[in-house]
């Protein structure tokens, strides 16, 4: 193996990004993943366990972990924290009833040591629904301004139309890249 190959390999390895996608059940995590990957989204069933997808995007290799959100699965979330570069927290913006739950679960994650270095992207999903709260209201509802431990951004989006998914993902990659791949 030549030096160049080794360097190339190292570089490839460097460009791998691990994203963990979490949120309450029915937030739209799997739909976001599939839509972003250009797959059919009208036949999705609730996720038991997790899905993992590796996507190529802008020269990065994204390993996206989409873990089921129902209450009984949340205790397993911690099994997926290790070496996470970015956390994508997905919110059903039309589900006002569970915004408190949503806030509690998110803030519980942010004190986790193994997620300490991760960038946080909040997707205020389902903006296409008539009853959806705008991203600014979700930001207030989740007390995002209190967060000082993580780089974060909230992005209103719709997994069904695909609106703003790219913007969100691009932001989280840029933020991770500026922290992790500064040697490039």
């Amino acid at each position: 193996m030549g030096l160049l190959t080794i360097l190339k390999k190292m570089k490839q390895k460097e460009k791998e990004v691990r994203l963990l996608m979490l949120g309450l059940d029915n937030a739209g995590k799997t739909t976001i993943l599939k839509k972003f990957n250009g797959e059919d989204i009208d036949k999705i069933s609730p996720t038991l366990g997790f899905n993992i997808k590796t996507l190529e995007h802008r020269g990065f290799k994204l390993n996206v972990w989409d873990v089921g959100g129902q209450k009984s699965l949340r205790s397993y979330w911690r099994n997926y924290f290790e070496s996470t570069d970015g956390l994508i927290w997905v919110v059903d913006s039309a589900d006002r009833m569970r915004l408190q739950d949503c806030k509690r679960e998110l803030h519980a994650l942010l004190v986790e040591e193994r997620l300490a270095g991760a960038t946080l992207l909040v997707f205020a999903n389902k903006q296409d629904l008539p009853g959806a709260l705008p991203a600014a209201d979700i930001k207030k509802g989740l007390d995002l301004d209190e967060i000082t431990t993580h780089h974060w951004l909230i992005q209103g989006c719709s997994a069904v139309t695909g609106e703003n998914l790219l913007q969100g993902i691009d932001w989280i990659i840029d933020d991770i890249a500026s922290r992790v791949f500064t040697m490039d």
Binding site: N26, D42, Q70, K71
Partner: peptide, 22 residues
């Protein structure tokens, strides 16, 4: 409803992809 193995308090959302067939 979770006793029956639905995700949360309203089974409605669990039928998302499979609709009435489910």
């Amino acid at each position: 409803w979770t006793q029956l193995g639905f995700q949360g308090e309203d089974p409605k959302t669990d039928f998302r992809g499979m609709g009435q067939l489910g």
